[in-house]
């Protein structure tokens, strides 16, 4: 099947857009190798029938031949109603495979629809108008940045496996790829001025309890003092030493590594560490400063900044993928 996936097709027009009904979608139909084998079987049967002068043989041969032809139409129509409705992809770290989840919709039930990119494929799907289906396409990543989804080939050999119908789907969907974390000690802004003090400047950040204050939206629920709440004192948040002072800024300039990518990988690891220890942290990069904060959303913002650092903003930030979270589908707006 793989070699067939690479079959040259007619190039698609630039304005090609998936899912729009007023533009005809190109569907290609071509016999599979089984179709070719079956053709040989049919020719044998035809020769046999001609030699024996057997009309029933002719009838069977022509019946099977017509069956094959009619099945080509069915193969085409099976795929004709299917379209990719949207694509989403949860960010990954470089080196992990990006899983593009394509949601399929169909105007009538389509059987055994197969999705593939050059690097991987998904299981066959059944798509019906009243229930959409999703297929996950694994795409390997090596570098940080935005990994665009290559052209997806939707195909199906249904019903007989003698013909294959396929169509291309191009979306501007891309998967955000964070730098690959490179383990090491935390390096904050202060460390640059006092390199000798490097090590664990805020390692105590979450340990020394200093007091309570009133809950503000955005505070982590882990910090809420449920004991105080149960006593009817309202939502109080525990405060720890280190939060009072300057939050640590993981500093680009403080890193000894000379290489940009290594620096980013180190910073990425620090963000992960900072997030895991629930401290407040920020980033200092040549492109600017990410103000300290905490929580999942903050982590993502930091990682995204690292992922896109230094990349051309036009290509790095496609129109609808900028602030996209893992839960939204893009590609059809």
């Amino acid at each position: 099947m793989d070699e067939l996936l690479k079959m040259p097709g007619i190039p698609l027009p630039a304005s090609f857009r998936f899912g729009s009904r007023n533009r005809a979608r190109r569907i290609y139909v071509f016999p599979t190798r089984y179709g070719a084998i079956f053709l040989v079987v049919l020719l044998t049967m035809l020769m046999g029938s001609a030699n024996y002068g057997n009309n029933m043989g002719f009838l069977l041969t022509f019946l099977l031949g017509s069956l094959v032809l009619v099945s080509a139409v069915h193969t085409h129509h099976n795929l004709a109603g299917v379209r990719v409705d949207g694509v989403r992809c949860a960010p990954v770290f470089a080196g992990q495979p990006a899983l593009f989840e394509c949601r399929l919709r169909a105007s009538r039930c389509a059987e055994a629809v197969h999705l593939a990119v050059s690097s991987g494929r998904a299981r066959d799907l059944r798509v019906c108008p009243d229930n959409s289906a999703s297929a996950s396409l694994p795409v390997p990543t090596r570098h940080r940045g935005r990994k665009p989804l290559e052209t997806v080939v939707l195909s199906s050999v249904y019903p007989f496996g003698l013909f294959r119908a396929w169509t291309h789907y191009r979306s501007d969907a891309a998967c955000l790829v964070y730098p690959k974390p490179l383990p090491g000690p935390l390096v904050t802004a202060g460390d640059a001025r006092d390199p000798g003090a490097g090590g664990k400047p805020s390692g105590t950040g979450a340990e020394d309890f200093t007091g309570m204050r009133g809950y503000q939206p955005g505070d982590s629920l882990h910090r809420v003092s449920w004991k105080a709440f149960s006593r009817g004192r309202g939502l109080m948040v525990k405060q720890f030493a280190g939060e009072e002072g300057i939050s640590p800024l993981f500093d680009w300039y403080a890193l000894p590594e000379p290489d940009v990518e290594t620096k980013l990988s180190r910073l990425c690891d620090m963000v992960q560490q900072g997030h895991r220890s629930r401290m407040k942290y920020g980033l200092r990069l040549p492109s600017g400063i990410v103000e300290p904060g905490r929580g999942e959303r903050h982590r993502r913002r930091c990682l995204e900044t690292l992922a896109l650092y230094g990349l051309d903003s036009a290509s790095a930030q496609p129109k609808n993928a900028g602030r996209q979270s893992a839960g939204e589908f893009s590609g059809r707006k």
């Binding site: 009309n55 002719f58 009838l59 022509f62 019946l63 031949g65 017509s66 069956l67 032809l69 009619v70 099945s71 069915h74 019903p159």
Partner: peptide, 14 residues
């Protein structure tokens, strides 16, 4: 269904 659809064509070929 496919068999029925194929039948007329098969008859003509025959």
């Amino acid at each position: 269904r496919i068999l029925l659809q194929a039948l007329p064509l098969a008859a003509i070929l025959f």
